[in-house]
Design a binder for these strands. Structure first.
Lengths: 312, 312
DNA sequence: ACATGTTGCTGCCGTTTCGGCAACAGCTAT
DNA sequence: ATAGCTGTTGCCGAAACGGCAGCAACATGT
């Protein structure tokens, strides 16, 4: 099923690899064929699409415009294919997810397991990365669905949903703070703190609040792994900060206690966004999972809020 | 700039014309070439795309799926072209509008004139039709922007904006009702009435209200032209019903009076929707006009509401 | 400084694909 | 039955495509 001009696919491969010869290897054709198609494209557009450096090719402005078009075409072709396939049989395909680490403990594995028990022909590719990388992966077409801290997202991405979760302190069961219902940042800073490194978005959520305080936190541990921070907190090493999303399992085992942060009477929110490329229609089987994801996250948000309402 | 497989464009032409030979004439190629490309497409998809009748070709289910994909590709190609063009010079292109008749008196001509005074290389194609035809024209890719009475729209169309305008009675300056601020339907039916035919959506807005009344309206004039109805009302022939959108100019000349309808104390609304194909990104110059259209209609809605608030 | 590996590009040439011409069968309307 | 339309199919020339080998330009490693 290859009803698009080879030029389109060659261009796409060159863009991804950044090299004509690498693209040729990827496509199992001679590099000369790829080179010629690119030259022909540039002649038809009337403008160079790549800047040739000694090390490879980089997109020009016009090239990026064409890349956007080509991605739209190929992604929509993908959708068409799966639409035709689902017409005569079961759903089949791969869903590619890019998400931040908070989801890996409970939300994502639960959802994927549940989904696969119902649709066994749908496989998954999940990649964990930072929030800004999630958005970048979506823009480059390397992922279908992205979950990230809700920053300002570029206009070529669509925010399917926005769910807010309370940021809180994670302490071991035996920690002096463990009996409280909520904690303030100041109360936490009296103890050793497990700090997030700037590459994690938690850092950027807490830093402005810490800056407002008079005292600086006691130097303790810095890490860039949500998982590591959580395990350290469980071992009583210090106080970590995350949303409740990542500790469902550990708090069920009563090893960890989650204490919602209280910042001058108001909660500290961590906004989670679900993103999709805007200029794209998802295949039916991908959209179905997306809806489940939105529903599930909304459900957890609702459950959290209900729990806090009970406290207050 | 033809970097897409000929099969794509041939298929598109065949779908539009419903005939291979007609498509061949349109494309200035031999009919055999077109026939072969279609057969090749069907072989690659693995399923027939058209049903061959003696009179021409009709899309199958799979054919309609491919038609959707092809339309997405070609419309996005169009956007890419205009994006490249606008990079090196002024905006240039054609905006195709499908709309209902209410807009032709004032809103659309004002907007187009104003827009063209600023962007002279942008030309317009406007076609007036019924509300359901507007949606159909959008779905078939025959129009870029559609304006219609807001019915339930199919999921492949996106409602960019929804503006509500009050339905009212149109009477000549000398008409006995002309001095009132508002009128009820019963009051109007005491006079000769200019009724809309079922092909106009005004019919479907008023019919349920008329059905609720005990008396049936005096037989008068029935018409399917907003313009004709308006001119008849201006000549004192009877009472017509429309929104205020279509009589800006005539009411400025004080020939016509607009009396908002009062239905048991509540206004009668006519919802106007602005539509665009959902699976499409508009070219920049088209989107700019769309924004102006939304702004302008919103402005008129606001002005109307302000006027009514003053009355009340 | 030299050698080596890599980059993209370009003649040359065989293969594939495409399009035009003419003819064919099937159907409809006059 | 005739005429006009439909889509399809051999046949053949033209255009496009892809593979091979070699080119110059640049980067890297010794």
């Amino acid at each position: 099923m290859r009803f698009h001009s080879p030029a389109i696919q060659y261009f796409h491969a060159v863009r991804r690899t950044g090299s004509i010869r690498a693209a040729a290897r990827l496509l199992n054709v001679a590099s000369s064929a790829v080179s010629r198609q690119i030259l022909k494209l540039e002649q038809e557009v009337g403008s160079p699409l790549f800047e040739r450096t000694a090390r490879g090719l980089t997109l020009t402005t016009v090239g990026e415009m064409l890349a956007r078009h080509v991605m739209n075409v190929l992604q929509d072709l993908d959708r068409f294919r799966s639409d035709v396939a689902s017409l005569s049989g079961a759903w089949r395909g791969t869903i590619s997810i890019a998400c931040i680490e908070s989801l890996t403990e409970s939300v994502l594995p639960d959802l994927i397991a549940s989904h696969r028990s119902r649709a066994r022909r749908v496989s998954f590719t999940t990649e964990v990365m930072g929030s800004s990388d999630v958005l970048e992966a979506l823009r480059r077409g390397e992922a279908d669905i992205g979950i990230a801290i809700a920053l300002r997202h570029p206009p070529d991405l669509r925010q399917v949903a926005l769910k807010r979760f309370r940021l809180g302190a994670l302490v071991a069961r035996e920690h002096p703070l463990a009996r409280r219902k909520t904690v303030t940042l100041e109360q936490c800073l009296a103890f050793p703190v497990i700090q997030a490194l700037p590459e994690l978005s938690i850092y950027h959520l807490l830093q402005p609040l810490i800056a407002q305080l008079s005292e600086t936190p006691e130097p303790a541990i810095q890490a860039n792994s949500i998982d590591l921070m959580r395990e350290l907190a469980a071992r009583g090493v210090g106080v970590a900060f995350q949303t409740q999303l990542g500790i469902i399992r550990l708090s069920r085992d009563s090893q960890l206690v989650f204490l919602p942060l209280d910042n001058a009477g108001s909660p500290v929110w961590s906004d989670l966004g679900i993103y999709v490329r805007a200029e794209r229609t998802l295949p039916a089987f991908t959209d179905a999972f997306l809806q489940e994801l939105v529903r599930e996250l909304g459900e957890r948000e609702r459950r959290e809020n209900a729990a806090y309402a009970q406290i207050a």
